[in-house]
C-alpha cells in the first residue's frame, strides 16, 4: 500500500506542477480559473491519498470543505469574468 501511495503522490505532484504552469501561463483569466479548479481537485485527491495511506480520518472534513470551496470559488470568479471580460 505504501509504494502505491508513493506513486500516487508523485503523480499528483506532477499534476499540481502542470496546473501551476497553466496558472502562470494562462492565456486568459478563464484559463487561470480552470487551472485553479483542477489544482483544488489535485489537493482534494492528495488528502484522499493520505487518508488511504495512513487510514486516519482526521482530514476528511477538510476534503469535503475543500471540494465545496473549489466549486464556490469557480462559480464566483466565473460571474466576475462576465462583468469584467476575460
Amino acid at each position: 500500500m505504501i509504494p502505491a501511495t508513493n506513486l500516487a503522490f508523485a503523480a499528483l505532484g506532477l499534476a499540481a506542477l502542470l496546473c501551476l504552469l497553466r496558472l502562470v501561463r494562462g492565456d486568459s483569466l478563464a484559463d487561470r480559473i480552470v487551472a485553479v479548479d483542477s489544482l483544488v481537485l489535485v489537493v482534494v485527491a492528495g488528502i484522499g491519498v493520505h487518508a488511504a495511506r495512513t487510514g486516519d480520518d482526521v482530514y476528511l472534513d477538510v476534503l469535503v470543505v475543500a471540494a465545496l470551496l473549489g466549486f464556490v470559488g469557480t462559480t464566483t470568479v466565473a460571474r466576475f469574468i462576465e462583468r469584467r471580460g476575460a
Binding site: 506513486l7 500516487a8 499528483l12 506532477l14 499534476a15 496546473c19 484522499g48 491519498v49
Partner: peptide
C-alpha cells in the same frame, strides 16, 4: 488510488 492519481496527471497534461 494509483489509477486516480494517473488520471489527475492526465488532466494536468490535458491542460
Amino acid at each position: 488510488v494509483v489509477a486516480g492519481s494517473l488520471l489527475a496527471l492526465l488532466a494536468g497534461v490535458g491542460l
